[in-house]
């Protein structure tokens, strides 16, 4: 295609029509973003009232100076998200590779079981985890949350990495061995670089799911180990504090920044592969 053809194509796509699909698009975006806009607006509201009375930054001030319990919960969330996503990514990727290329007993059974945490209702997973931990007399706390999050993150990593592996040409491993690479070297020099996009999306997905999980965490949490969603919920009893709104604003900005970084990172990888 010639360059000016491409330009023309772009120009055509850029014209805005009042078509059905465009109207639907506006509606969907509207309903998606209205809650966010409301939250952001109220985070600057002077009073706790439901009508906007005046602009203030006091909730932000309070958030940063006088909300130690909130920050503790936030730190817990972050810690659990980091650790569980990294663990799940390592285990899930290894499981995907092992299941794809090694023949062993119970291979099929393991594949079907590994999807269970993904399809089971969260309540069931939560309850069974709780029973499991208490039967082993493990104290509920950050550690149990970490284990639980790793468990429900695993199938997602497994799924994403497996999908990537399906496109992977196994003979490139043999080529690497042929050219003098040991089994380990071919894993790090050929397999992992090729499936890195799958591994990274698994990692990101795990972080997100761990940060936002409420139900399962609720079952396996112990005293003093609230994660952010649990903390926010517990505060609702005292009415929605605008500090939460301020926090939401920060989280929205943080998420957007993260998404942007990942997108450009994945783009560079894609361009290089």
């Amino acid at each position: 295609m010639k360059e000016h053809d491409i330009e023309r194509l772009h120009a055509r796509n850029n014209q805005v029509h009042l078509s059905f699909s465009n109207i639907m698009l506006v509606f969907v975006l509207f309903f998606l973003f209205i809650p966010l806009i409301v939250v952001v607006t109220y985070s600057f509201n002077e009073t706790k009232e439901m009508n906007f009375t005046g602009f203030t930054l006091q909730w932000y001030k309070k958030l940063f100076t006088d909300s130690s319990a909130l920050w503790a919960a936030f730190t817990n969330s972050l810690l659990v998200a980091m650790l569980s996503s990294i663990t799940a990514t390592i285990l899930g990727s290894m499981a995907a590779i092992g299941i794809k290329w090694y023949q062993f007993k119970a291979r099929k059974a393991i594949i079907s079981v590994s999807y269970l945490p993904m399809v089971l209702p969260e309540v069931i997973v939560g309850v069974s985890m709780l029973i499991f931990f208490s039967s082993l007399n493990i104290n509920l706390g950050l550690f149990t949350i970490y284990i639980a999050h790793t468990t429900f993150n695993l199938p997602f990593v497994f799924l994403l990495v497996s999908a990537r592996l399906d496109e992977f040409d196994y003979s490139t491993i043999e080529a690497a061995r042929d050219l003098g690479a040991t089994e380990t070297q071919s894993l790090f020099k050929v397999v992992i670089p090729s499936i890195l996009p799958g591994i990274l999306s698994g990692l990101l997905m795990s972080v997100t799911m761990s940060l936002e999980d409420f139900v399962i965490t609720f079952f396996v949490t112990g005293a003093g180990s609230d994660t952010l969603p649990l903390y926010v919920y517990s505060q609702i009893r005292y009415g929605v504090s605008p500090v939460i709104n301020a926090l939401s604003m920060i989280v929205i900005l943080g998420t957007m920044a993260l998404a942007w970084v990942c997108k450009s990172f994945l783009k560079t990888i894609a361009a290089n592969s």
Partner: peptide, 19 residues
């Protein structure tokens, strides 16, 4: 093992490293 044999292969599908 393959990496210790002084033999190299040109594969039916080439098997170039895509990355």
């Amino acid at each position: 093992p393959p990496e210790k044999r002084h033999v190299n292969t040109i594969f039916q599908t080439y098997a170039l490293f895509p990355h």
